[in-house]
Design a protein around this nucleic acid. Structure first.
Lengths: 259, 259
DNA sequence: AGCAATTTCCGTAGCCTATACGAGAATAGC
DNA sequence: GCTATTCTCGTATAGGCTACGGAAATTGCT
């Protein structure tokens, strides 16, 4: 995973880029002087996302993106202050892809269905862009995409009638679970595609573990579950099942507070 | 975050390194020929961990670790096949640091206390080694540390009396939540230490967001929670509170299945 | 038309990674 | 001392990000 240090450029500049299509607080450029640009920021961000989608986050290097756009590497720096900023823009753009109803728009009636909508949209997003999982999300890019999703989730939790403080806490817990679990799921899928090695094949390659190193006496519960076929056949469904199970239990627990 | 692709060297070689101190299936080296080594694998792994702890994962480069040990960079490759393997070894070593009772050893009586022990040990581990959060954990190093922790968690969940399949599912959901949430928490702390910028200061730097870009009409719930002081003062306690809240609700939901 | 101002484009170079290769140094047994 | 074996590590290659500075393009003014 790549780690954003998120301190390079000025925060103001980054915010201006993130919100570039939302408010023109300043009437943008005053003049039309100088050489005309061949690209624009959206093209750069789109190219970065496309590369990362197809060939992994590592392929979205500055030189890779430039090559994909048919320009020199350094040309990108006219549009983006640094790679870190480019990543921020890519992240917020895919965060905004989720189709979540805005305030006032129709939405599922029940609380759980509203959360499930967030869950499914987020899962689909991670599935389309598995590289997202390997980017740190503390101090995320505070762009329109992130804020819209947070607003939706908070508004869904608001109907529980908890205190404002607890509403926020509950929403945080839910995002933590959904984002992490969906990210893990997507990362696993991506590995299968990228390495061509299924999760099962990966375990088979480690057959030596059970043969040579595994000590049943030190791992009685694992052994018992194994013997009872508790691990199922495909690890894919197990992950799926556990995702839903965990989310449902978490929502059960939260709903029980409502009285 | 750094991404391990976990496919470079042969799986057998990696397993042998991971389990090096646990079983001597083969009586190790036959001869004592040749030049005597100046290091051993444990020293290399320890140096990598120490460097990552103190100055971040990026500081644990091959050249960085070599310099810390006072040897040439290429010397490390006598002990470790590649950087990827070194990371695997670092990871499993810190996973094993957690002080969790082995089978047969005394442990907390209640189910929840057993889970809480796992939670606290894991939190402390992430806090000591925040870089762990930025390493992908799908297809993790299957070493003694990982297996011991999994065994403990499964054995704790086993007392619920669920089916083997559901026991495993529940344990997966719990690790997903705990590992992710604890990782996020630790990453945030690390950023504060490393950049010297507190979470609050980070938000203050983005004051422009609320001033210039934020649209209250599109974010009514956020605005309402803000006005009701629902975000609290320090984001630190909010994260702490949300961690406990989410875990408690998840455990509530799981416990409700027990009948 | 010519020139200045301005903006974009991008080659070069510096410093950072990881690691393949191969030469040299150290050690054991003969 | 000789040889086999093992460890050490300098050099070189290939890739990453990005500071710098000059070339190219475009507008507007004279």
């Amino acid at each position: 995973m790549a780690v954003r240090h998120s301190g390079g450029g000025s925060a103001d500049r980054t915010l201006a880029l993130l919100w570039r299509n939302h408010k023109q607080a300043e009437p943008s450029r005053p003049t039309k002087l100088g050489r005309r640009p061949t690209l624009d920021l959206d093209k750069v961000v789109d190219a970065g996302i496309a590369l990362a989608d197809e060939r992994g986050l590592a392929a979205a290097s500055m030189s890779g993106v430039a090559k994909a756009l048919g320009v020199g590497t350094m040309t990108l720096y006219t549009y983006v202050p640094s790679k870190e900023e480019l990543l921020d823009l890519m992240v917020d753009q895919v965060l905004a892809e989720r189709d979540l109803p805005a305030p006032g728009e129709p939405r599922p009636t029940g609380w759980r269905d509203q959360i499930n909508l967030y869950s499914e949209q987020t899962r689909a997003m991670f599935h389309r862009h598995p590289w997202l999982a390997s980017i740190s999300t503390i101090r995320p890019p505070v762009g329109p995409g992130m804020l819209a999703a947070r607003e939706y989730l908070l508004s869904a939790c608001a109907v529980l009638g908890l205190s404002p403080r607890q509403t926020n806490t509950a929403a945080l817990a839910i995002t933590t679970y959904i984002d992490s679990a969906a990210g893990l799921e997507a990362e696993s899928d991506q590995l299968e595609r990228q390495t061509g090695q299924s999760h099962d094949a990966w375990w088979t390659e480690r057959w030596d573990l059970w043969e040579t190193y595994f000590d049943q006496d030190r791992h009685p519960t694992m052994t018992a579950i194994w013997n009872a076929n508790g691990y199922g056949d495909g690890t894919r469904e197990a992950a799926d099942e556990s995702y839903r199970f965990g989310l449902d239990r978490l929502l059960d627990g939260i709903e029980a507070l409502k009285r």
